[in-house]
Design a binder for these strands. Structure first.
Lengths: 255, 255
DNA sequence: ACTTCTGTTTCTTCTGGCGAAACGCGGAGG
DNA sequence: CCTCCGCGTTTCGCCAGAAGAAACAGAAGT
């Protein structure tokens, strides 16, 4: 079965929907059509159709569009990540309570990670990702931890062809990124050392399912001042331990 | 501006998506195409397209489809009902705490209500709607409370042309339903007396926005044994009071 | 073996998706 | 005042591809 069955108008309209959904704010027609690189007329029609179905809401006062009620509702009802979240939550809480830093659960989606759940530090200064939000695989500990444990011939599926550094610490070449992934695999955890956001350190480890495949990842994030080089080894070991505990609850059997 | 801009394939694919979303379980191709009343080939293509974009996930083992990660993620990020929920929540909690029964917040969406938020009773036997879930306007106190305060020429937008009773207590004719709506408007609250679910009573009142338009509704639900005819007047008065408090926080000015 | 049901593929018709261009409006600047 | 620009909305005609009937392939049951 190949991809011969893509209905082009549907595919393109869904890109419009994704654009609005990921932007997380109201957008104007011009901005949307620029973002999705489609002619204005086409984008306009898709938006009208999306509005007719309740997936998008148009504010006639401002002429801005935003995600609509029906999409919100379906999103609340969707069971997609439910089992994983429930399974991971107890161990995530333990990890959070041990370090009083934020713990994230995420999975791979193309070249991004998507945050499935998070258990936040109780401190004022804490990491706060968005449930359902995304970050690039290559600049996050979560992303690197998951990809590193995939077969190498599957890495290109999750890595960009060109790197857009998010900070001064981000990787700028694919070669250095692949080295980092190999290091990640050897030591068992991925490290985001200010690559996704300046001043933030993050340690991530992969979660395996019952077939031994990478199912998700769990990470501990903190301000760099609190996760310095002395604190890192213990944090890394605990993240690995947490990921393993969750994996076993998913049916994974370590060899 | 009329509805001359509907892109048919997009519209139809979104009906497939709505079908899957509202069903809340995995479905097979045959069942979906029966539900949306489309030819198998067409439905199959739409599903492939929806899968390609991550809105639907196909399980190759079972050949079943379900709502996919990307739709879940957008649903979590969507801000659609956020302001209403935040505004209503404190008053809803007070109402719940006063009666120790479940309080629901919902809005109109076509002929249904959609549950935006809920604050649940702490008792074992309690009402439990689904966040993002739907019920028909005509059989719910929430629905009736909201529609009753719309101009009557807008009632047909929200009422079915033919009634499908959900219980023995449900309305069976449009005439009796319209009488109920007029009564609702006179007394200020809608009553679901076992019409949506047997043995459940529910009182609902409309929430108005700053322009005096119906924005939402709030309701108190309980097992009928606990909300008998002696308890009903006080509950109704409190629900009306809560709705008014929320309305004022939304900028509504009572006359 | 045959039947039934499922999902997948093929082929041809003609609908309507598509986008360039035009239109209308409001705001900013000279 | 006028002109320009940028926005969203509308028009028009071509041909790409959406559409669906029919066939195919496989699995399960009798």
């Amino acid at each position: 079965m190949t991809n011969d069955y893509i209905v082009k108008p549907v595919y393109k309209a869904l890109q419009v929907l994704l654009c609005l959904g990921e932007e997380r704010r109201e957008m104007a027609l011009s901005e949307i059509c620029y973002r999705v690189a489609m002619p204005k007329t086409t984008t306009f029609r898709y938006l009208q159709t999306l509005c007719a179905c309740g997936f998008v809401t148009h504010d006639p006062g401002t002429d801005l569009y935003r995600i609509g009620l029906r999409l919100w509702a379906i999103g609340q009802l969707a069971r997609e990540p439910l089992h994983l979240r429930e399974t991971a939550l107890p161990a995530m809480r333990e990890l959070r309570d041990r370090f009083n830093e934020t713990v994230n659960l995420g999975i791979l989606d193309g070249r991004d990670i998507v945050y499935l759940d998070m258990v936040e530090s109780r401190r004022s200064l804490r990491m706060q990702a968005q449930l359902g939000g995304r970050d690039p695989v290559y600049s996050t500990a979560l992303g690197k931890a998951m990809v590193a444990f995939l077969p190498e011939d599957r890495w290109p599926e999750h890595l960009p062809t060109r790197l857009t550094p998010r900070t001064d610490a981000s990787h700028t070449t694919l070669a250095s990124l692949r080295d980092d992934l190999r290091r990640t695999r050897e030591r068992g955890y991925g490290l985001d050392d200010g690559e996704n956001e300046e001043g933030v350190r993050c340690v991530g480890a992969p979660i395996f399912d019952q077939d031994g495949h990478v199912a998700a990842g769990v990470s501990l994030s903190a301000p760099a001042a609190r996760m310095n080089d002395r604190a890192l080894p213990e944090a890394a070991a605990s993240v690995i331990q947490t990921a393993l505990a969750i994996s076993c609850r998913l049916g994974y059997r370590p060899r």
